[in-house]
Design a protein around this nucleic acid. Structure first.
Lengths: 231, 231
DNA sequence: GCGCCCAGAATATGATCAAATTTCACCTTG
DNA sequence: CAAGGTGAAATTTGATCATATTCTGGGCGC
């Protein structure tokens, strides 16, 4: 009677994650994470059939996920019908740096006007985990925690459009950042996150914005120098 | 000998348009134009099957175009599987205004450093067409020419990432702008475009950037007031 | 008023068609 | 005679369509 439907129901209680996500959304999230954390190298080709196999998904969801990521700037349509991870030129990095500095410092300013002690504490916990990853030389962990820090911060800004924009910008330089960190390790970062948290606790939005701008500038300069001369 | 392949060569000269565009790209461009120029109203529902009929396309290309436009922020995924044109809140308009002011004034600054007399003349021609549309009360023409002015300008800035960002921002407020213009007409715009062109001819990038920022501020304020109280 | 059933639309799969790249054989040329 | 290039065939990959399945939402009956 009811044997055929029980599988789709997923009888278990799933309060932790989305109980029912479309396949194309899952594929998008997975591909997005792979790009954001540098599992795909700049210039690497991305094929539909390759993803259907590696992700175990059908063709249509993969196509839709790729379209979204192209629109995000995370993937590049190469004119013929090949798709690849973009390679950043130094001019691209300059552009990204300018936009990130304006958007993300504004997001930090707005967030600092709204965050409470609990939210700041969560931010600090992430920053501690980030320090641990740096000490351990854990590149993947560094990338994840660094993204988490900014993402959590922007989520508190009550500015969904700018937060979305910032998210998409991160997708663009994620692969390159991974290359740089893989080459030179994670040391030698005078941490601006401490300044951000400190200025937040003291209730100085302008200081927060300035610290964020410096953090972004440092990050982009790091990418510029790390890729130096190649482009 | 050569009969089988001559067809693929596309013996005709096709310099006017793209000789071969995928269906999903065509659908995307068409839907994009409809949203950008306000043929779809804010809040209006968009169905896949409706578009397959109205655009005469298959289901898969329509799906991909919709995914891209959702990623652009031009369409909105309503959680259940309905898709609609987003309705802007006043907070959204504030965010858009901030981002547009920074991005587009920077684009104008960079463009003014590179544009030659011919390109400036083309810009002025567009602005004259824009004035004609305003005088005639041609709302659709006003929207098209206004977009053309900014788009042409940004194309000269040699900053593809920022130009793409600006393009996507326009998609977000296009429907609302149409509503406002349809309600209050196209009069009462002290034209900042003249100031932009004048400052360009005199080679004053900062003046260009300032004029652009004012133009953007005026436009967004117009939308805010036009939609006033509703949201 | 609550719950079940049905219609309609969206999601997902697989198959089929078309295009592009690659490979390889053959011809030309030094 | 050997080496390089040109052309076509074959393979690989992307694009499109038709179809089945699932889910949402509303209407009807209890």
């Amino acid at each position: 009677m009811s044997m055929t439907k029980t599988v789709a129901q997923s009888g278990q209680t799933d309060p932790d994650e989305g109980p029912k996500l479309p396949a194309h959304e899952i594929v998008y999230q997975q591909l997005r994470a792979q790009i954001l954390f540098g599992e795909l190298a700049p210039g690497q080709a991305v094929t539909i059939q390759g993803l259907t196999e590696s992700l175990g998904a059908g063709m249509t969801p993969v196509r839709e996920a790729i379209r979204r990521l192209i629109s995000d700037g995370a993937l590049m349509f190469q004119g013929n019908r090949r798709v690849s991870v973009p390679v950043l030129s130094s001019a691209d990095i300059d552009e990204l740096g300018f936009v990130r500095k304006t958007i993300e410092s504004e997001l930090a300013r707005r967030a600092s006007l709204r965050m409470n002690a609990v939210q700041i504490a969560r931010l600090e916990a992430i920053d501690i985990a980030l320090d641990r990853a740096i000490s351990a030389g854990d590149v993947a962990g560094y990338l994840v925690q660094n993204y988490s820090f900014h993402s959590e911060l922007y989520a508190c800004a009550n500015a969904p459009i700018m937060a979305d924009l910032a998210d998409r910008l991160w997708l663009r330089f994620g692969p390159s950042l991974r290359v740089v960190c893989g080459r030179f390790g994670t040391q030698s970062f005078p941490d601006r996150h401490k300044d951000i948290i400190e200025a937040m606790r003291r209730g100085e939005p302008e200081k927060v914005a300035q610290a964020m701008e410096k953090d972004v500038a440092q990050g982009m300069e790091q990418v510029t120098q790390g890729l130096g001369g190649a482009n």
